[in-house]
């Protein structure tokens, strides 16, 4: 799991021999949160001009903008903690990292599906972020606690928006019911990864900086389960395969194409200011 050139265990905060140092783990924790927000913002940006009604163009744009704001704060903080020379700012981290350095879950990188699938994804992701940011309000990293304080209000709205739509679609017409149920099935193999622990999160949890994703899973499942019940939908069966490895930089084929679009202008003009 650890890199071959990882710092020695003598560095403060390391959990076991061979684990990266505290600075690296802290940075990775912030990157995993920031990358989730950045990559989902990138996907939601694709909806503008393609939404089912103009109000929804605005709403999805709003959610994307909130997530982009969270990503900018989290990546900036990651750059500070990392303290590389020269320091990497939000753009260096967003535009100049290679795919294997991105630590987001697979759920957010999945290509845009239909609106039912998007609301299924948003319901899971916003429910996860709501529990996450609520837990991070007391983070020992004051900057992270500050981000959480603003973000928790934003994601409460995102969660509510997805909830309202899942109710409408689930209990709307036979077609909408079938479509949103299919959307839930499609995203289900990507849900479990949200609740899986990883080294940086274990370190963050021990230091009071962060929280174990596994500690959030029960509340997230309970919330989503309640919404699905109200929407006359069923929770999909446990999938035979589920995504793993995003936190360690292993992604799906869709990720490279997403990054190509995200990064190509910045990478085509090294050193330019925009």
């Amino acid at each position: 799991m650890s890199a071959p050139d990882a710092a020695p265990a003598a560095v403060a905060g390391a959990r076991k021999p061979g684990l990266p140092d505290a600075r690296t783990l802290h940075t990775r924790y912030l990157l995993s949160l920031g990358d989730d927000a950045l990559i989902y913002a990138q996907r939601l940006g694709e909806w503008l001009t393609h939404a089912p009604q103009i109000e929804e163009d605005m709403a999805l744009g709003n959610v994307g903008l909130d997530l982009l704001g969270q990503a900018r704060s989290l990546l900036t903080r990651a750059g500070e903690v990392e303290d590389a020379h020269p320091r990497r700012d939000e753009d260096a981290l967003a535009m100049l990292r290679d795919e294997r350095e991105f630590r987001n879950v697979h759920l957010v990188e999945r290509p845009r599906g239909d609106f039912g699938q998007e609301m299924a994804r948003m319901l899971w992701f916003a429910s996860y972020q709501y529990e996450l940011y609520t837990a991070l309000l007391g983070s020992a990293d004051a900057t992270l606690a500050g981000v959480a304080q603003k973000a928790v209000k934003e994601v409460a709205y995102h969660r509510d928006h997805a909830t309202q739509w899942v109710l409408r679609l689930g209990d709307g017409t036979p077609e909408s019911h079938a479509r949103v149920q299919a959307g839930l099935e499609a995203v289900h193999p990507y849900v479990q990864e949200l609740g899986e622990d990883f080294d940086a999160a274990r370190w963050a949890s021990e230091q009071g900086v962060g929280v174990l994703p596994s500690s959030l899973a029960a509340s997230v499942n309970a919330y989503v389960g309640e919404v699905l019940e109200g929407a006359t939908l069923v929770m999909p069966d446990e999938p035979r395969w589920h995504a793993r490895g995003g936190r360690e930089g292993v992604h799906s084929g869709a990720m490279g194409l997403l990054l190509a679009e995200l990064q190509h202008i910045a990478r085509s003009h090294p050193g330019a200011t925009w």
Binding site: A41, D57, G61, H264
Partner: peptide, 26 residues
């Protein structure tokens, strides 16, 4: 161009601008 904006600040401004246009339409 939202997906390709060359910096995160530009991306945020552009998303907000396109969203404003939806608002003007409404």
């Amino acid at each position: 161009w939202i997906g390709r904006a060359p910096s995160l600040r530009r991306k945020a401004i552009l998303m907000a601008k396109v969203q404003d246009e939806a608002g003007h339409g409404l």
